[in-house]
């Protein structure tokens, strides 16, 4: 949008909403919405406390482990499915099922199987992320321009060369797209896992704050989580854009 001939940055309206929040908070309309400035003050206070840092590091650890395993398993699996028809036909129905299934329902199973701890959360996170990564890697490999592959063969590329110099790069935009959506899903997974297994990470912190009606603390944690998720998504979107220039041209 333009104001006085000056193009306003895309997300700048959030400042306006923040101001509105501050006003609503100052007017004490409801107990549930404290003033934004107070929340930030609280945020500074709790950001050095041990519970907060533990929650953050536990969450980060579970998230990292979950997404890394989703990537390490998901991308090769997707490429394999894209290249081998039999594997594809055997696995694709399951990938599609788990892609649209409400995986939240599986968390209780993971809890009884892997205990009420980090392990179950890591697996929840990986489960949320992996299917879209598989599917996109598969799609990326499947829509590789045939003439690129033929070009490689005609210049005498070995299978290994063809894989690392053609397949991987040609499928990279789709793979990265899948990783980006997978990460966003993983953020949701890691939080859902912690909410249901509420004795670790932010799950425990939410219990603590909400049972004591510490609204400012609660919002402070939410803001940290939401900002981290948003920044992560933006970074990945930026990376994706850097390689997607050739994806969009190919799609045309």
């Amino acid at each position: 949008m333009k104001l006085f001939g000056y193009e306003l940055p895309q997300m700048s309206s959030l400042i306006l909403w923040g101001l509105l929040w501050e006003i609503v908070g100052r007017l004490e309309v409801t107990f549930f919405i404290p003033a934004l400035s107070d929340i930030f003050v609280t945020l500074l206070e709790i950001s050095t406390t041990k519970v907060f840092l533990t929650a953050l590091s536990e969450t980060g650890y579970a998230f990292l482990l979950g997404t890394v395993s989703a990537i390490v398993i998901g991308i090769p699996l997707g490429i394999l499915m894209g290249k081998n028809r039999l594997v594809d036909e055997l696995l694709l129905p399951w990938v599609n099922i788990f892609l649209s299934a409400p995986l939240t329902a599986l968390v209780p199973v993971l809890m009884v199987l892997f205990g009420f701890g980090l392990q179950a959360i890591v697996i929840t996170t990986a489960l949320f992320a992996i299917w879209i990564i598989v599917l996109n890697a598969r799609a990326g490999v499947m829509q590789i321009n045939r003439s690129l592959v033929e070009m490689a063969h005609s210049f005498g590329a070995t299978p290994k060369d063809a894989f690392f110099k053609i397949y991987f790069w040609a499928a990279l935009p789709e793979i990265l797209g899948g990783v980006r959506i997978g990460f966003i899903r993983a953020v949701k997974g890691v939080i859902i896992g912690q909410l249901l297994i509420s004795i670790v990470g932010f799950g425990a912190l939410f219990e603590l704050y909400s049972s004591n009606f510490l609204m400012k603390h609660f919002w402070a944690v939410l803001i940290v989580l939401f900002s981290l998720a948003f920044i992560l998504a933006e970074i990945l979107a930026y990376l994706e854009k850097r390689v997607s220039y050739y994806a969009s041209r190919r799609a045309a």
């Binding site: 549930f32 909410l195 939410l222 989580l225 948003f230 998504a233």
Partner: peptide, 26 residues
């Protein structure tokens, strides 16, 4: 678009499940 979209963009990337304890309180 400028005014409203960012809220939904943030909501879409954010783990909104974390709002549940708050909703229960409210």
């Amino acid at each position: 678009d400028w005014l409203v979209s960012p809220i939904f963009v943030v909501m879409q990337t954010a783990p909104l499940a974390a709002l549940i304890p708050l909703l229960v309180m409210a």
